[in-house]
Amino acid sequence: MVDILILMFSAILIENYIFSKFLGICPFLGVSDKPSTAVGMGFAVTFVMTISSAVTYGVYYLVLEPLGVEYLQTIAFILIIAALVQFIEMFLRKYIPALYSALGIYLPLITTNCAVLGAAMLNIQEGHNFIESVVYGFSSAIGFTLALVIFAGVRERMALSKPPKAFRGVPIALVAAGLIAMAFSGFLGISFN
């Protein structure tokens, strides 16, 4: 139990996907204009990442490893994640239309989100078991959401300020992201041993 909590804590804060692993930067910059869209994207990613962690775990240990074709994991995982996103989209559209319309365009966008693929591959690399994989996928996505929401708040404030012309837009956003990443690197000092 303690191990699981440590895993969650480190996935959310210490090894935050955006601020220390630099995965999923594209949606991070793309949808962090407003907190509302940031939360929507975060939800969609959490949903997909949790389920894809479970499915890719099964496919790796039940199909790829017995056949001795572990090197196919990248291409197989992309295939699975893409199909999974499509499937989830259909399912939500049919049974939970409210959630479907709330997630909107963000759901199909996740197909190419490298954070989702990253979680699937890191699960294998770190040798997580099934429970750990699902928890790791879920809490990494929570960390992703946290980063998105924090940054959306920062960007809202930045919209009111007047940086020099050359810095306006994405450049100042990247500078701010770098500063937040430095703040997050403070968590690296935390040790659980």
């Binding site: 199909v63 056949l67 001795g68 196919l72 291409i75 197989a76």
Partner: peptide, 10 residues
């Protein structure tokens, strides 16, 4: 085997 494997998954 790899080809079949991916083809079957796909």
């Amino acid at each position: 085997i790899p080809t079949l494997c991916l083809a079957v998954i796909g």
